[in-house]
């Protein structure tokens, strides 16, 4: 298997609509496959739990933990392929097909995965116009008194702050009850338990299901969650200031507007970019 097994271009480099991916020994991963785009600007940690600080660390981690149990097996597979021998000789002065160069090659490619031509991007550049419904959704996202999505998902152009938050998803009322500790499970800080990396709001049409455990299968379910389904968890982010009321309480019109705006962040040119397709 390859990275592409769980990170498919047509799904924004997530895994074909699966809640959890299946690793090389047939076991499910423990979290939903994250999309791969615009990662060159991530500086607060990779993965849902932030356990890798650089893309190179993330790649090492993925190969060690999700694909093969050790690098030696992976390298033998790559080295056995004459194509790679030739390509590595072109790319690297030392021509070595070793762990260092494999990681460099993968991370270099991943950094080229840039999604920037959604309808919303075009509107920012004056090349497209949002419909009134989409504009209403934009206003909801960027208004503190309404959707207030922007605090975690509004750093344009990333549409995420790349930081870690407990968004009140897990229905728990004690630290010990979190079934996925997220960042806190990695760094051992109790006030970080339950915090997950805020994913980008881009390409949502292609990257379902949603949340760290893929429990929300549609965008409508996500909107409903933030509207009425938020739990006041022990480490809920203070920015989730409507958590005590269950969420931001959107009406049907507002939900439709929010969804319409979120769909303007789909970038069909990204998922159809031939440069990102498998060459095999």
């Amino acid at each position: 298997m390859s990275c592409g097994t769980c990170h498919n271009l047509s799904n924004g480099f997530t895994d074909n609509g699966l809640v959890f991916s299946i690793n090389d020994i047939g076991a499910p991963t423990i979290r939903n496959s994250s999309p791969l785009f615009n990662l060159a600007w991530t500086d607060k940690g990779f993965f849902w739990d932030g356990r890798a600080m650089t893309l190179e660390e993330a790649i090492n981690d993925a190969i060690n933990n999700e694909q093969h149990p050790e690098w030696e097996t992976t390298l033998l597979d790559i080295q056995a392929d004459d194509t790679y021998e030739l390509e590595f000789a072109k790319a690297f002065e030392d021509a070595k097909v070793d762990q260092t160069n494999v990681v460099k090659a993968i991370s270099s490619f991943v950094r080229t995965l840039i999604s920037k031509d959604s309808k919303y991007d075009l509107s920012v550049r004056g090349q497209a116009t949002l419909t009134p419904l989409e504009q209403e959704g934009f206003d909801l996202v960027f208004t503190t008194e309404r959707g207030d999505c922007f605090h975690c998902h509004g750093v344009y152009p990333f549409m995420t702050d790349n930081d870690f938050h407990d968004n009140g998803l897990q229905d728990v009322n004690a630290i010990a009850a979190y079934d996925d500790q997220g960042l806190g499970g990695f760094n051992g800080v109790s006030t970080d338990i339950g915090k997950m990396k805020a994913p980008p709001l881009r390409n949502l049409s292609y990257t379902a299901p949603y949340m760290h455990d893929g429990r929300l299968t549609t965008l409508d379910e996500v909107i409903d969650f933030y509207s009425e389904g938020v739990h006041a968890t022990p480490n809920v982010d203070p920015l989730m200031k409507q958590a005590l009321q269950g969420g931001v309480q959107l009406n049907a019109q507002e939900k439709a507007a929010l969804k319409a705006f979120l769909l303007t962040l789909d970038d069909p040119t990204f998922i159809s970019n031939e440069d990102y397709e498998s060459p095999f």
Binding site: W41, D43, K44, F142, T143, F150, G154, V155, Y156, F158, D161, N162, D163, A232, V236, P238, L239, M240, K241, A243, L244
Partner: peptide, 30 residues
């Protein structure tokens, strides 16, 4: 942008952020 200290809508920077909770009647209010 990585500092998340910029208001897109206002084209302006946030100069300081203080976040936390006030505990009232056993409930954490942001």
């Amino acid at each position: 942008l990585n500092r998340s200290m910029y208001w897109l809508m206002a084209n302006a920077y946030v100069y300081f952020k203080i976040e936390g909770f006030r505990i009232k009647n056993g409930v954490d209010e942001p």
